[in-house]
Computed example of a mutant assay.
Amino acid sequence: MTGTEMAIDKTKLEAQELHVQIMANGQLAASALLEFARGLKTMRDKRLYQALGYADFETYAEQAVGIRQRQAYNYISTLERLGAKYLEENAGLGISKLQLLAEIPANEREAFSEDNDLAGMSVAQIKAKIKEADDRGQQLSMLGTELADAQASEQTYKKAMERLEAENAELSRQLAEKQVEQPESPPAELDAETIEAIRRQAIEETKKTEAAARQELENRLAKAKAKAKEKAAAAEAKAAKEKEEAVRKAREEAAAKAKAEAEKAAADLLAQRQAETEEATRRAEELAKQLELNGLEGATEFKLLFGQLQAAADRMADIVDELREAGHPEKAEKLKKALHGALLALTEQMEG
């Protein structure tokens, strides 16, 4: 056997052994989730499936392992994004939940896991929680941007104030130099009164600029706070509306279910009553025939009374239905039991 053949056999042996491990770990479910994902990743990365006669990893996953290629890649990507330690510690959650957790940023994943009972939640509930967290994150990001803009405006304001103060100091220095350099009899256009007026004007302009900058900053901060409050209120209103819609839908489904059950119960009761009526009619007809055949007196009267009894029973059944439809199911049930008991008692009396 040549060295090449030995290398091929060695590779094929490694691939076969790994395939056996993958199949065994796949059957062990959550307890072997880490090894199952590791095996798939190694099989893909080292292309060991080729030694088993498969052209690509996707074909190997579907035909040899018995899972869809998307599922195989889900195991691998979850392992790569969560890491072996996290996957092993939380293997009991199952691949579907772990895949959702892999979508959460690493710096937020631990807090999300601590704040939620992941083991007791369904995949849909975890997905909803992640979406809710994403929505809050976007709102906070927008608010952070607005606050950053406001802070930047504040920094701009501070720099403007520093510049104005520097200009004011420079102007005061120049005025002081002018006062020192001017002769004992300064020219009329630069007397002390004029200098003081210039200084006061400069100070006044500085104050106006400072007030305008401060007002602009306060306005921007107020707008940012109002906008953030408006967005928070909109988010709360949306959540309340969604909750109200869910409650409404649940009520409608419950009402529809109750209606269907009531209709079915009414139909069953009607069928039972019709069957009992038909049976009673059959017995009465047989009895009437016997009476006629025997020529007994009272047969005609019996028929008349039986018809009245049947009509009364039908009317009482209608009353029961009317009470149930009018929203008095308890009263209807009591009357139904009373009628049923009376008919049973009459039947027992006749049979006795």
Rank of each mutant, 00 (worst) to 15 (best):
K303L: 14
L82C: 00
E62N: 10
D134R: 15
A299E: 11
R38L: 10
Q308E: 15
A7L: 14
E230R: 09
E276W: 07
A166E: 07
K331N: 05
V65D: 03
N219Q: 14
R38M: 08
N107E: 15
N116Y: 09
L305C: 01
A222T: 10
T156D: 13
H340F: 07
N116M: 01
E89M: 09
F57Q: 08
L296E: 09
E162R: 10
I126K: 05
F302R: 02
E244Y: 02
G26E: 00
A265T: 07
H340K: 13
A24S: 12
M43C: 04
Q139W: 06
Q125C: 01
S122F: 04
T281E: 14
A313K: 00
K225A: 10
E297I: 09
Q310N: 12
E88V: 01
A166K: 12
E110C: 05
E108D: 13
E5G: 01
R200M: 06
P186S: 04
G83D: 07
D45M: 09
E80T: 03
S96T: 12
A152F: 07
A246N: 02
T206P: 06
E154Y: 12
E279W: 07
L190M: 13
D9K: 11
D268A: 14
M316P: 05
D321M: 11
E204F: 08
K159Y: 09
A176D: 12
L346T: 06
R214P: 06
I76C: 03
H19E: 04
T209E: 11
K41W: 07
I104S: 02
E205W: 12
N74Q: 13
L118S: 07
A119Y: 10
E348N: 13
D117S: 14
A119W: 07
A30H: 11
A232P: 01
F57L: 07
E330A: 15
A288T: 01
E167P: 08
G53P: 06
K331Y: 00
N107H: 15
L147G: 01
N90A: 07
S153C: 03
E333F: 04
F306H: 00
L79P: 02
A258M: 09
E165T: 06
S96C: 02
L335G: 06
P183Q: 00
K178N: 05
Y86V: 08
A64D: 11
E218R: 15
L305Q: 13
E330T: 12
L34I: 05
A192P: 07
A84T: 12
A280D: 05
E322L: 09
L293M: 09
Q179L: 03
L304E: 12
L79W: 04
A160L: 14
D117F: 10
A265K: 12
T145A: 15
N168I: 05
E154S: 14
H340T: 15
R68H: 15
A284L: 11
K331L: 13
M316R: 13
E244P: 00
M43Y: 03
M43A: 02
V65P: 02
A232Q: 15
L28A: 15
K231P: 05
S172M: 08
L339H: 02
S172I: 02
E204T: 13
K158C: 05
A265E: 10
L339F: 01
